[in-house]
Amino acid sequence: MVAQLEKTTKSEIIYPDSDGKPMADNTLQFRWITTIKTNLDWLFVDNPQVFVAGDLLWYPTEGDNKKRVAPDAMVVFGREKGERGSYQQWKEDNIAPQVVFEILSPGNTTKEMYGKLLFYQNHGVEEYYIYDPDMNDLTGFVRQDNILQMIENIDGWESPRLGIRFELSQPELNIYYPNGDRFSTYNEEKQKVLEEKERADKEKERAEKEKERADKLEAKLRELGINLEDIN
């Protein structure tokens, strides 16, 4: 008797790297997203076990490619740095991002932001920060008793995980490193580099002129029959 075996194949689930949405709706939102993400990179540049990402899709549950979100910036402690198409949590020792940031634009809706709060609440985020650059308004949540609870006094708040401090100044938010330095934009850092290069070039030019002057003086003294080595 011949038994005919039926072969069944399980379709591979695809986890897209893009949700088709733009990272930012305007230049102000884009500047804040890149500033926060870049400065967080700099903050943890020497720690290989801190992964920082911007606008990266996070899939918390294997087998479910519909449940996903792309925080404007997120920080994951305990996961190595490196390139990723998406953050698939089951492939990351099941470690959820501990800190997430969202930068608002006029297109964000209350329903959308409430949905994100619930997502972060249900999937283990410890700190959640929302900044509205148009209104210069910062809202923060920190996990207490397994619930993301709103931070009442956000001005001057220091992140338990990151050690950074938030200051609601005018005309916009200031964020400070643990050492007191302020988060800066790429353009500000570029300007610092240019100013430092200009300073170094001037110092080099001054040193070269000083050496040229000393060489001329030594040559003149030799013409007069004076040897500097004899003087010394």
Rank of each mutant, 00 (worst) to 15 (best):
G156E: 04
G156M: 08
E158D: 11
S159E: 03
P160R: 07
P160S: 08
P160H: 09
L162M: 09
G163H: 11
G163L: 03
I164D: 00
I164H: 12
I164G: 04
I164T: 05
R165V: 00
R165H: 06
R165Y: 00
F166H: 04
F166S: 01
F166C: 00
F166W: 06
E167N: 13
E167Q: 13
L168K: 04
L168I: 11
L168D: 01
L168G: 01
S169W: 12
S169Y: 14
Q170V: 00
Q170Y: 10
P171S: 06
P171C: 05
E172R: 07
E172L: 06
E172F: 10
E172W: 04
L173P: 01
L173G: 01
L173W: 03
L173S: 01
N174T: 05
I175R: 07
I175N: 02
Y176M: 02
Y177L: 10
Y177V: 05
Y177C: 08
N179M: 07
N179F: 03
N179L: 07
G180M: 05
G180F: 06
G180C: 08
G180H: 05
D181H: 07
R182E: 13
R182Y: 03
F183L: 01
F183Y: 03
S184G: 13
T185N: 09
T185M: 09
T185E: 10
T185P: 12
T185Y: 10
Y186T: 10
Y186G: 07
Y186V: 12
E188Y: 06
E188T: 02
E188N: 05
E188Q: 09
K190G: 05
K190R: 13
Q191I: 04
Q191T: 09
Q191K: 13
K192F: 14
V193F: 10
V193K: 12
L194V: 06
L194T: 03
L194M: 12
E195F: 15
E195S: 02
E195D: 11
E196L: 10
E196T: 05
E198V: 04
E198D: 11
E198I: 06
R199H: 10
R199G: 00
A200S: 09
D201P: 00
D201K: 08
D201N: 11
K202P: 00
K202V: 02
K202Q: 14
K202T: 02
K202S: 08
E203Q: 12
E203A: 14
E205V: 08
E205A: 15
E205T: 07
E205R: 12
E205G: 09
R206S: 08
A207V: 02
E208W: 08
E208T: 06
E208P: 00
K209G: 03
K209C: 05
K209R: 15
E210W: 09
E210G: 05
E210S: 10
E210C: 09
E210A: 15
K211A: 15
K211Q: 11
K211W: 03
E212C: 13
E212M: 15
R213E: 02
A214Y: 07
A214Q: 08
D215W: 07
D215G: 05
D215C: 08
D215F: 13
D215P: 01
D215M: 15
L217R: 10
L217Q: 11
L217F: 11
L217A: 13
L217E: 14
E218D: 11
E218M: 06
E218S: 07
K220Q: 06
K220T: 00
L221K: 04
L221M: 14
L221P: 07
L221F: 15
L221D: 08
R222W: 14
R222T: 03
R222C: 00
R222D: 00
E223L: 15
